[in-house]
């Protein structure tokens, strides 16, 4: 079962992602902010990380930077969720090594398709 970490501060968004990904058979872990996300990442390995950009305490960009500079985690695919108008931040995220991004508002179904794609790629790679 592929393991996915969702880092998001909006309660309904995180719940919707959790329910939707669990429904599709993923093992989902949740973090309500970047700091909590990094803490979970330190103690677990994941097949995919989905993170929001604008979050309290530690931003999504810092999480991406942490993952991509980590010797073990650096190959974990990361999808960032960004609001419309944050195109410059998305560019920055790509420079940090992020694998994909989705702009809010987004279609839940589309996100799931992207998740499937990354997990499949990782399976093939492994």
């Amino acid at each position: 079962m592929a393991k996915v970490l969702v880092i998001e501060d909006e309660e309904l968004m995180i719940k919707a992602l959790e329910f939707r990904l669990k429904k599709d058979g993923y093992d989902v872990q949740l973090a309500r902010d970047g700091a909590q996300g990094i803490e979970i990442l330190d103690n677990n390995t994941f097949d995919l990380v989905i993170t929001d950009i604008m979050m309290p305490f530690v931003s999504g960009l810092e999480v991406v930077s942490y993952i991509k500079s980590h010797p073990i985690m650096k190959d974990t695919p990361v999808i960032v969720l960004s609001s419309i108008g944050l195109e410059r931040v998305v560019m920055e995220a790509f420079e940090l090594g992020v694998d994909d991004f989705i702009t809010k508002p987004f279609n839940l179904g589309e996100l799931v398709i992207r998740v499937k794609k990354f997990v499949r790629q990782r399976d093939v790679f492994n």
Binding site: M13, A16, K104, P105, N107, L108
Partner: peptide, 15 residues
């Protein structure tokens, strides 16, 4: 307020 803020976040069928 939950409906409004999430209507902003989702598109398509979810919205």
């Amino acid at each position: 307020s939950e409906l409004i803020s999430n209507h902003r976040n989702f598109s398509g069928r979810t919205a």
